[in-house]
């Protein structure tokens, strides 16, 4: 009789052990997924920052008096490059977005600059990168949400506490780049 009880207890312990291993592996996978998603954002942030000096030089050629705007952009750029944490990076990125928007608004006053081929190229490229940042942010935040949910809910919360899995930060941004746009059909109807 006794050995049956021992066997059952051992079996239960083994099963619990396997479940715990599964949960632990799931958490590691989740954390890795978050890190990979973060590197996706990081690539785009670096790409954008690397375009900034070029942009500033181009604009300076036509509008040299806008010193304040240039400084604002350059400051934001170095903030992006020095950002250590997710929150810092998000804040610096928002700063750079604002500064660039300001720069492009200023550029509107210089028709020659608007007509320059190099400037137009930079403008479309930056717009594209901004969109890519928005999408990679979306992917990152989806993964963070999933991961955080898992390490804060029963039963995985016990494993998370035991092995020191910590909640990851969301990448917050001003929600306007992806705001819904009313599609205009009048143009399509007029076209024919």
């Amino acid at each position: 009789m006794g050995w049956i009880i021992v066997l059952v207890v051992v079996a239960v312990l083994v099963i619990i052990g396997f479940i715990m291993i599964g949960m632990y592996n799931g958490l590691v996978r989740g954390r890795n997924r978050v890190r990979e998603a973060w590197s996706g954002i990081d690539v785009q942030l670096k790409r954008r920052a690397s375009l900034v000096p070029n942009l500033v030089e181009t604009v300076r050629g036509y509008a040299e008096h806008e010193r304040e705007t240039f400084e604002e952009v350059t400051r934001a750029r170095s903030a992006v490059e020095q950002a250590g944490t997710v929150a810092d990076a998000a804040q610096a990125n928002n700063m750079l977005t604002g500064a660039l928007r300001h720069l492009f608004a200023v550029a509107e006053n210089y028709p020659q600059l608007q007509a320059a081929e190099g400037f137009r190229q930079l403008q479309t490229e930056l717009a594209d990168i901004e969109e890519k940042i928005a999408f990679s942010r979306q992917f990152y935040n989806t993964n963070v949400l999933d991961y955080n949910n898992r390490i804060q809910t029963v039963p995985t919360v016990f494993i998370a506490n035991m092995f020191g899995f910590r909640a990851e930060e969301f990448f917050e941004a001003e929600e306007e780049a992806r705001a819904d746009v009313r599609v205009d059909f009048s143009r399509a109807a007029d076209a024919d």
Partner: peptide
């Protein structure tokens, strides 16, 4: 396509 692939990983 590129952007949406980034968005969905």
């Amino acid at each position: 396509v590129e952007n949406l692939c980034i968005g969905s990983g």
